[in-house]
Design a protein around this nucleic acid. Structure first.
Lengths: 260, 260
DNA sequence: AAGTGGTCTAGACCACGAG
DNA sequence: TCGTGGTCTAGACCACTTC
């Protein structure tokens, strides 16, 4: 009926691992296609003759691997892999801004995916010690415009980002508006007279926090990459600090380094 | 006694999340130091007055985040972070080689850690399709020298790396020897008349394979970063391809990008 | 033997989504 | 309302580690 096997009590592996393995196999073979719904817990309990916690533990393992996503009240569904986004090191090249595109949209267009941004939140607040350090803000003027947003590729969350711009630079530029206008915040920063010279980027990876898991709609076992970027103008003044968290398997970051 | 708080049944968050949050807080504050043992399940049950599955679910969340490691029969321990290694984008600068140091040792010295290399294995074999593509090898001369090694910082494995050098370039240079001599393989490649011009690096992150877990001595919930590097000489000829797998939390990669 | 985490059972009530 | 997954309880037996 379900086409799944059965648990073998004499097998060395515990039943929940066997069940997880059987489901994983169905997914790998494509018999459970991306987007398709797994058998419900009740069906799995009946099919395998085990307790509810046992099938839940099996499904938990697949969720941890990011293979499936549970939707409360609806069911558990096979995850479709998001398209891999290649981020070239020239993605902030001025020519993209001059065409009125933000870096994210320019990159998405180049790779043939649909891109969108949502959950934009903009606030104006005092900088934390870390942010003040990154932006070299003095104590008497440490206000920053904070821009949070979430990026989606083909409708799936792939990145959350928080930008911090010194309030003095953002003043009267539209940076504090939800819609920053053509070219994005970097275009507005240049409008304000700060010509961008270079960026430093710090990359690492880790497991997501529960909040990040929710925002990125990933399981507990799916790692994220963190990319911290600081933008400098031609006077070596930091004009923006951006903290991004990306779904690791959705990104390939490319850099070119001179041997000098 | 335990210094932990209590669960608030009227709080919106479920008890297991509250317990996870309290433990996470203790770890963040350093009151539960790296390597230290968490209260046992029995203690947590008594302290919070909940069922065993509830405390297990809390601990499960911390395990998923890689904050703690469970050891069967012993307890659950706060994971001790290995020293973070900052890799600056100038780490292959010629000046390091001219001082007779390999990139890894130069970087380790700069950050004040002890560094070592082991498990060096060198072979000479036909390139796979992927390697041949990366090194632009023709079918009639696709032999490569393959150098595998493992890097340790302060005695802990942090990276495994496999380099592929076209056999034609490696011939008679010492690249095929276990000990490549001062400056490492890049110095030998330059000795062979290929002056290095630049490198491209592709970075992503994922969960480790079982083999990688063994080599890096990490648990199943610890992510790795992958860095694929191709070295080019001044004629834009690829002279080396290097596939590295790093313990994610042990590395911070730094790049500088021009706004151009 | 005692303490630890790993797995399992058989129930219960709740929150969410769709009809 | 009904089916779904989310959380919780109160037990049980097992495997591993330490003494």
């Amino acid at each position: 009926m379900l086409g799944l096997g059965t648990v073998d009590r004499s097998d060395g592996r515990p039943p929940y691992r066997q069940i997880a393995g059987l489901l994983r196999e169905q997914i790998a073979l494509g018999r459970l296609a991306p987007g398709e719904k797994l058998p419900s817990e009740a069906e799995l309990i009946a099919h395998f003759g085990v307790a509810r916690m046992t099938v839940r533990q099996a499904v938990q393992e697949l969720r941890g691997e990011g293979l499936v996503v549970a939707e409360h009240g609806k069911g558990v569904f096979v995850r479709s892999a998001p398209p891999v986004r290649r981020l070239a090191s020239d993605r902030f090249a001025r020519r993209h801004r001059e065409q009125g595109k933000s870096a994210f949209l320019a990159e998405a267009e180049a790779s043939g995916h649909t891109a969108s941004v949502d959950q934009i939140r903009v606030t104006n607040e005092p900088a934390s010690a870390e942010i003040a350090r990154r932006l070299r803000l003095s104590d008497d003027d440490s206000n920053v415009v904070v821009r949070y947003r979430r990026y989606l590729a083909d409708g799936r969350p792939v990145e959350i980002a928080t930008s911090y711009i010194p309030a003095a630079i953002a003043a009267g530029t539209g940076i504090a508006e939800v819609n920053t206008g053509p070219g994005g915040i970097y275009a507005r920063i240049e409008d304000a007279g700060h010509r961008l010279a270079h960026f430093t980027e710090e990359i690492s990876a880790r497991m997501p926090t529960p909040d990040e898991r929710r925002a990125l709609e990933i399981g507990a076992g799916v790692p994220v990459m963190t990319l911290l970027r600081t933008a400098y103008d031609t006077n070596e003044v930091p004009v923006e600090f951006c903290d991004t968290v990306k779904v690791a398997h959705a990104y390939l970051l490319e850099y070119d380094v001179l041997a000098r």
